[in-house]
């Protein structure tokens, strides 16, 4: 039960910078089901923050609060240090938060360029699509992310492999000067080589100074790319671990039997004192 050296409690700041996204005391219930209870979460620029937890731990609910799909019952969302209210995915996009969903959210019948610009097409005064411009910029974006496996950016997404599709989905998310990219199980459906491809891409995003949140069941993936790991259990945050100072075993323990740092109703509990 004693906190190990890698155990960082509550609002302790392992990196000096202020968090780009900070969630404070987020609670959300659906009828009688308490999905989230007083959850704290934060991520900084240049950091890959993994969000792990068992099924039903509240990972998706937490992310949907950031996406504006759910609105939290209580708690505060701070973006770049300022409190914000996110009511729709468009609000999130305006702030610079982009999402890459588990089921890809690409249109199979459209080509890579068309998917990259879906919903934000460049057009001229005659409502004509600026195809050359979009094609050129897509090529640049993919190049900057070292996505080199796609033969033609004018081929339909249906003809791409799983890893290539996921790469397109990620590239689509970072194209818009986004500051924070949230990836929901990006490697769930991929093979070994494909997973590797996507994880490389995730690392590159952080290297380019973006904040990345990686939701994953796969601790192997998490330990490969994440700088920090937030563990959720039964709708509560169990703690934040630094990759360098923790072990998979410890994280697994936290996922399955972790003790929340805070329990609603009880102000502060033992782990706080232990550190």
């Amino acid at each position: 039960m004693g906190a190990s050296s890698g155990f960082v409690v509550g609002n302790a700041t392992p990196v000096s910078e202020t968090p780009i996204l900070q969630l404070r005391g987020i609670s959300k219930s659906f009828g009688s089901v308490q999905a989230l209870t007083d959850v704290d979460f934060e991520v900084r620029l240049g950091e890959v923050m993994a969000l792990v937890g068992d099924n039903g731990a509240g990972k998706s609910t937490l992310i949907k609060c950031v996406a504006g799909i759910h609105s939290p019952d209580s708690g505060q969302i701070l973006f770049d240090g300022k409190p914000v209210h996110i009511h729709s995915p468009k609000d999130a996009a305006r702030l610079g938060i982009e999402f890459v969903y588990q089921d890809l959210a690409l249109c199979d019948n459209l080509d890579v360029v068309q998917n990259m610009y879906l919903g934000r097409e460049e057009r001229d005064w005659l409502f004509r699509l600026k195809e050359p411009l979009m094609e050129q910029r897509t090529a640049e974006t993919l190049k900057s992310l070292s996505v080199t496996t796609i033969r033609s950016i004018r081929q339909p997404v249906a003809s791409l492999s799983g890893g290539q599709r996921q790469s397109v989905a990620v590239a689509k998310a970072v194209q818009w000067n986004s500051k924070l990219v949230i990836l929901d199980e990006p490697t769930a459906a991929l093979g070994v080589a494909q997973t590797r491809q996507v994880l490389e891409l995730v690392k590159r995003l952080a290297d380019q100074g973006l904040a990345v949140v990686l939701i994953s069941h796969n601790l192997h993936d998490v330990f490969e790319v994440a700088t920090s790991i937030t563990v959720l259990r039964l709708g509560r945050d169990v703690g934040v671990y630094e990759r360098e100072k923790t072990t998979q075993q410890e994280v697994v323990q936290a996922i399955t039997a972790g003790i929340p740092t805070k329990v609603s109703g009880i102000p502060e509990t033992t782990p706080e004192l232990a550190s």
Partner: peptide
């Protein structure tokens, strides 16, 4: 083929959920 509207028609027909998430 040449306007955002047409592009969105193809997108909704291909994957309505993806289109919705793209803000269409």
């Amino acid at each position: 083929k040449r306007t955002p509207f047409g592009r969105h028609v193809y997108a909704v027909g291909g994957n309505a959920e993806a289109a919705r998430r793209a803000g269409i």
